[in-house]
Design a protein around this nucleic acid. Structure first.
Lengths: 216, 216
DNA sequence: GGGGATTTCTGCACCGGGTATACTTTTACT
DNA sequence: AGTAAAAGTATACCCGGTGCAGAAATCCCC
């Protein structure tokens, strides 16, 4: 069985091709007609594959869309683990997010390429995809919890609390950016505000909600 | 039975009875055999109602379980709105949560009545129910965002950021409590720790994550 | 290059959640 | 009593997802 260096073997190559064929057929159809308006049977047909085979590659219809984001699920956790010594986890996450803004990483919500925006809109329009994104968020929380525990020497509950706050805030920032771009604001114009908002948000995380004025 | 007090009208009363009949049949069957092991057709039959009628009362299978929690979705928002003058929103939420712990409100995760625990376990065992709870959380965030904006005079983004943090933390606390009870710890014994943890969590929320030690 | 073992793919039948339609029963109102 | 509106029902259907048994492709060793 051992192919030592170059080739993945014909079988593996074909599998990979089939996989991308299915995925691309799916995205194309979904973007054109909407997620809920296209059945998996249609996707399978477009990819020239049986329905059964489609489900051998992607466990659910939603995964046809979301599998592309799989890497991002553990991204924050990896950033925390890889932070330089004597750096606070939060600082590392903040720098990473700011870098994401600079590079217009779609995960920051600050990418206005039509393709990206359309995918985003498609997700928002399909409740089951939104639900899937929530599971995603949960995964990110868990990964971050573990990363914090293993690299910051804090109790488990504290790690969990910090993780859920960090993930929630970052998600909220991204949603806010994406919302504004959906309204037509170009990424370039939004950038400065996005940075300011991110810094505000991370400062809130660092310093707490005390500043929320009491009413009366 | 009494015929005199006919304020709601026969039609309304019958509807209400049908509704609770369906709901109770559902809970009973789900607790006995598991959420995924019981079909809505079986629930309908047990409630002596057609499948179509069941879906006229509850839009999805999951709602058969979670409709009982509908009130809690806006609970935090209401607490914030109803707080006494010159009180910080966060303080109001904290006091409310601590009161929930004292009263063993199931939403704090600190209720170990068998019925409550079984429902909780049932939800955890069914991914679609977990997803539904996430939507719930989102609803709570939105309601709280609005409440904060309207009563605390802060910008929208700040309100959103605060809201997601608060909801996330409270949720994490409840999950932690429920997890421990699931392991067999009685609510009475857990209470002190739960209070301590809650105070820790709210202090973290108030004062920020600065205290997270840098490594190196 | 042949041929068996193994993996992948396929068609088909099936299940369960959810909806459309067209019809019957029940309640409400005068 | 009689009729309009509301609620309930039966049936057939769509779609996502799975089990199964067999056909086809790939691998690997001789």
């Amino acid at each position: 069985m051992g192919v030592v260096d170059g080739k993945p073997g014909l079988r593996e190559r074909k599998k990979q091709r089939t996989r991308t064929a299915i995925s691309e057929a799916a995205i194309t159809l979904f973007l054109e007609h909407g997620f809920n308006q296209v059945s998996v049977a249609q996707v399978a047909e477009a990819a020239e594959v049986s329905k059964r085979t489609l489900f051998a590659y992607f466990p659910t219809k939603e995964d046809l869309v979301v599998h592309r984001l799989a890497d991002h699920e553990t991204e924050i956790a990896r950033v925390v683990r890889a932070r330089p010594p004597r750096t606070a986890p939060l600082a590392a996450v903040r720098e990473h997010f700011l870098k994401g803004l600079r590079e217009r990483d779609p995960i920051t919500g600050l990418n206005d390429h039509p393709q990206v925006r359309r995918v985003h809109q498609m997700i928002l329009d399909a409740p089951s995809l939104v639900a899937r994104m929530d599971r995603f968020k949960t995964g990110a929380e868990q990964a971050l919890t573990q990363a914090l525990q293993e690299t910051a020497d804090i109790p488990e509950l504290t790690a969990r609390l910090a993780a859920v706050q960090i993930v929630a805030v970052q998600w909220a920032l991204a949603q806010d950016n994406a919302e504004r771009l959906a309204y037509g604001e170009p990424a370039g114009e939004r950038y400065a505000g996005a940075v300011k908002d991110a810094e505000h948000a991370f400062s809130l995380l660092e310093n707490g909600l005390r500043q929320l004025t009491p009413r009366g």
